[in-house]
Each structure stands twice: as C-alpha cells, then as structure tokens.
Nucleic acid binder design. Structure first.
Lengths: 169, 169
DNA sequence: GATAATTGCTTTAAGCTTAAAATAACTTGG
DNA sequence: CCAAGTTATTTTAAGCTTAAAGCAATTATC
C-alpha cells in the first residue's frame, strides 16, 4: 500500500496501478438505460392498451409456453423474481380469472399454475401486439446489428453468471 | 385473411406476409435477462456489504455528479422514475442523514437536493467497490466486445427513443 | 424407519414504483 | 394586471418486490 520512491515501469504499472473501470461502468449504465427505456414504454402501452401490468403479462407469457402449467418454483426461477412475490401475483391473476391453481399430483407441497382458456386467449391477443411494439422499438437496428447484439449479450450473460457463481467460493 | 390460390413470389411475400418478429423478441428478452441478472447481483451486494438499497445508491450517484445539488424534477428525469417515487426516497435519505433539502432561491416551488459531507463520503466508498463489481461482471468481454456492445446499445437507445417519441403523433 | 437437510410455498415488514389527482408557484398572452 | 396554461412537488391508492422467518412436505443418510 505504501508507494515506493522507485518509479514503476509501464508493465508493473499495468499490473499494480488500480485500473479505473469507468468504461465498464458506462457500459453498464447504458445497458440499464436501454432496458429501463424499453421496459417503461412496454409497461405503459400494456396499461393503456390492455389495462394489464407488466408482471402479469410476463407471468402469462411463461405459462403460455408451458401447456401443462408450471409450479411456483419453476415460475420463480424463470422470471427471476422471489417466491414470495409470485404468491401475491398469482393470487390476483386467479382472482381475475386468467390463471388456475391445481394441486400437484406428485408433490403435496406444490401447486401447478396454468392459464385458463380465456386467459390464454387474452394473452395471445396482447402478445401479438406486444411483438410489434418490440419490433418497432428495435426497428432501427439492421439484421447484422441485431445478431451482433444478440451474441454480445449472450457473452455478457455468461460473464455475469460466472461472476455471480464464482463469488460463493 | 383468405389465402389466394395464386402463389406469391418472394418479393411479394416479403412485403405482404406478416413477418414474425421473434428474433427481436428474443433480443429483447436477452437484454432484459442481462440487466435483471446484473441488477439483482448489484442489489444484493449493496445490501450485504453496505446495507443500502439500489435506489438509494442510484440517487446518491446522481447527486455526486452534481456538486451544487439538483431539483427533484432533474433527478426524476435523470433517474427515469416518477416524481412521486422520489418524494419518499428523498424523505428516507434525509432521515438517514445522507442528503439535504434546501429551498431553491429562484423558484419557491422547487427544492434542491444535495449530498451531506458524510453522505458523499459513504457514497464514494461504496462507489469504488461497486465499480470493481461491475468490472468483474463484465470481465469476460474483450475490449472490442465492450466497445461494440457500447455502440450497439447506443443505436438501440436511439431506436427506442425514436419509437417512443414517434408514437404521440 | 428415524433424523437431518432440502425444497415448495406463504407470511410479514419494509420499501419501491407507478398513475392519477391535488396543490402551489411560476410564466405567458392579452 | 390577470386569466390560462405550465411546471414542481406531494399525496393517495394500488400493486410490485425483496429478504427473512416460518411451516409443511419431501428426499437423503444412516
């Protein structure tokens, strides 16, 4: 920690100098800005157009991909939200008739959640329009931009997972 | 909606066929996943390490960049959150001694928010460590990856803004 | 088969977030 | 000046979100 009087050569500097990571920070902030911007717009359009919240839409989107339903734990992992969060969300969606709870046949702790007929219908209608919004929001990117971005985000995802997994050691 | 018997050539198809935009949708979901993943990790480290929430940290980060303080409206725009949201957040940060409210000299409606001495000190300590976390989370990306990603996200940001601005017409 | 550890879910308390409505202060155009 | 419109902020109601604690059911281990 105490700086020696002896001057450091470039190589030593590269190793010893505390690098600044402002570039990564700016990258993170831009990533966050993009997401917040798009998410906010989608949220507001879902509300205006269908009077539905984003979390509700997200939950239904997961269920639409699982014709036989999913347990709360599966949903929790897929949606990356806490278990307790889902309890309330599911409650409200059951109350509004969009989803159904059934006791699991194989595990008496678990409940299986699935879309009702009308829930699925409503979701599909919203999803079709939602897809167009997304296409428009990303509309100025070329095909190549999109595939490059996809690849780089894939790499980012892996990097983050590595950093997160690695910490517990 | 009724399909004609006459087969469409490729060009006509490209124009008339309702394109599917699953690619853009997957891109959006991946963007969201990356952000959620990183944001969740940062949130949890801030809590464990400094017992502070992400919104509090974000607010202080804005203030640290504005030595003379900012009004609530400025903060609201920068942080992309609602005005009402800030009222409560600011209240709690004042209560904990991190920030200060002063009446604006030029506008009696407005209040100027700024960091206290200790608030700034605490923030800088957290920010230094936070920067290392981010560097680590993005650590598997090369210099080129990062600059490519930065550029593509910049393009995405502009595209989204265009789509959002354009809607009001 | 009994004990221990894990898993699935709910509850709780606290805080975050939004949209919408309300209040107060400022600005602008006659 | 003054009415009309805008801007800065707060309040409200509803819902979202998390972490942590707790309970019940399952799985693993001996």
């Amino acid at each position: 920690m105490d700086d020696q009087a002896i001057p450091l050569d470039a190589e030593t500097k590269a190793v010893e100098m505390p690098e600044d990571h402002r570039e990564e920070l700016r990258l993170w902030l831009r990533l966050l800005t993009c997401t917040t911007l798009i998410e906010g717009e989608v949220r507001s359009r879902l509300r205006e157009r269908f009077d539905v919240t984003l979390p509700r839409f997200d939950l239904m989107a997961q269920l639409d991909k699982a014709p036989d339903g999913m347990t709360l734990s599966d949903l929790s992992k897929r949606m990356m939200v806490s278990n307790g969060n889902l309890t309330g969300l599911v409650e409200r969606l059951v109350a509004s008739g969009h989803i159904l709870r059934t006791a699991s046949l194989t595990d008496r702790r678990a409940t299986v959640i699935s879309l009702t007929e009308s829930g699925r219908g409503e979701f599909r209608t919203m999803a079709a329009e939602h897809e167009l919004w997304i296409a428009d929001l990303f509309g100025d990117l070329t095909e190549k931009d999109r595939s490059d971005l996809m690849r780089l985000l894939g790499k980012t995802k892996l990097s983050a997972r590595r950093a997160i997994q690695g910490e517990g050691q």
